[in-house]
Design a protein around this nucleic acid. Structure first.
Length: 234
DNA sequence: CGGGTTTGACCTGCGC
DNA sequence: GCGCAGGTCAAACCCG
C-alpha cells in the first residue's frame, strides 16, 4: 500500500453533467465489485486518533503524505495553523479557513457555488432532511483532506457504513456517503475523487467521534481479556 | 442471519 | 413556481 502526497491542483471538469447511477455496470471499477468497505480499507499502521481530526492526520509523521485541501492553495498562515493544530493534537475542525478563497472551495466542492462548503465550514447545512423537519442541524465540525490512493476508503480506525452514493455535478466520480457504525456516534464522512485527478481521494469528515478508536479497541481486546483474567486470578 | 452495500425515491435549498 | 443538485432514506440485495 502506498499513499503519496496529493500535490498540485486539479481542475474540476465543468463539462460533465452527472446523473444518479441506475446501471450497476456504471459502478464497475469504482465500488470494488461488492467488497465491503472493511475489506477495501487500507491500513495506516499505528497512527493514533485525535478527538477532532481523523487518526491519519493527527499528531503523527503521516502529515508528510497527507496533503490537506488547503495545502499550498490558501494563505500560508492557514496551512501553518492547520499543521500546528494537528501536530499539537488539537485538530482542525471549526471556523473559517482564513486565506482560502471561495474560488478554491468551490473548486474542491463544486456542489456549492457560494463557497459555503469546504474545509471547516458549512456547519449549518440542512439539505437532505427527508424527515421533513425544518429545524437546522446542530453545528458540527467539518474538515476535509485529500490523499493520493488507489483505494477510496482509507482505514482511519473507525467503522463506517455506506448509506448513499450520488453522482456529483462537474465530477466524473460519484460521491459516497458514510456514517459511523457506532450506535451513539453521528459522525459522517463523504468520499469523492477529484475530477481532474482521479488518483486523488477527497475525504470530508463531519462531526466528532464520541467513542474510542474502534480498531485500537479491537486490537486491545485480547490484552484486556487477559488483564481481566489475571485480575480475577488475584 | 446479521451486517453492509446498492440504488431508486424523496426531501430540502437555491437559482432563475 | 419550477427545475436542478446535493443529501438521506429504506427496501432489496449481497456476502461471510
Amino acid at each position: 500500500m502506498k499513499i503519496e502526497t496529493a500535490a498540485g491542483t486539479s481542475s474540476i471538469d465543468q463539462t460533465d453533467r452527472n446523473h444518479t447511477y441506475r446501471d450497476r455496470t456504471d459502478m464497475e471499477g469504482f465500488q470494488g465489485g461488492g467488497q465491503s468497505s472493511q475489506q477495501q480499507q487500507q491500513s495506516f499502521g499505528n497512527l493514533l486518533p485525535s478527538p477532532l481530526a481523523p487518526p491519519l492526520v493527527s499528531n503523527n509523521p503521516a502529515l508528510e503524505w497527507v496533503d490537506l485541501l488547503l495545502s499550498g492553495r490558501c494563505g500560508t498562515g492557514t496551512q501553518q495553523e492547520l499543521l500546528q493544530s494537528l501536530q499539537t493534537g488539537q485538530g482542525f475542525s471549526t471556523g473559517e479557513p482564513s486565506g482560502c478563497s471561495n474560488e478554491v472551495l468551490s473548486e474542491i466542492f463544486p456542489m456549492n457555488s457560494t463557497g459555503s462548503a469546504g474545509v471547516g465550514v458549512d456547519v449549518n447545512d440542512v439539505r437532505g432532511s427527508k424527515g421533513g423537519g425544518k429545524m437546522k442541524k446542530a453545528a458540527k465540525p467539518r474538515f476535509a483532506f485529500q490523499t493520493r490512493s488507489a483505494d477510496d476508503i482509507l482505514d482511519d480506525g473507525y467503522r463506517w457504513r455506506k448509506y448513499g452514493q450520488k453522482a456529483v455535478k462537474n465530477s466524473m466520480s460519484p460521491r459516497s456517503y458514510y456514517r459511523c457504525t457506532h450506535p451513539t456516534c453521528e459522525v459522517k464522512k463523504q468520499v469523492q475523487r477529484l475530477a481532474g485527478d482521479t488518483s486523488i481521494v477527497v475525504t470530508t469528515y463531519e462531526g466528532v467521534h464520541n467513542h474510542p478508536y474502534e480498531k485500537l479497541m479491537e486490537s486491545l481486546a485480547p490484552l484486556l481479556k487477559q488483564l481481566q483474567f489475571l485480575t480475577r486470578s488475584f
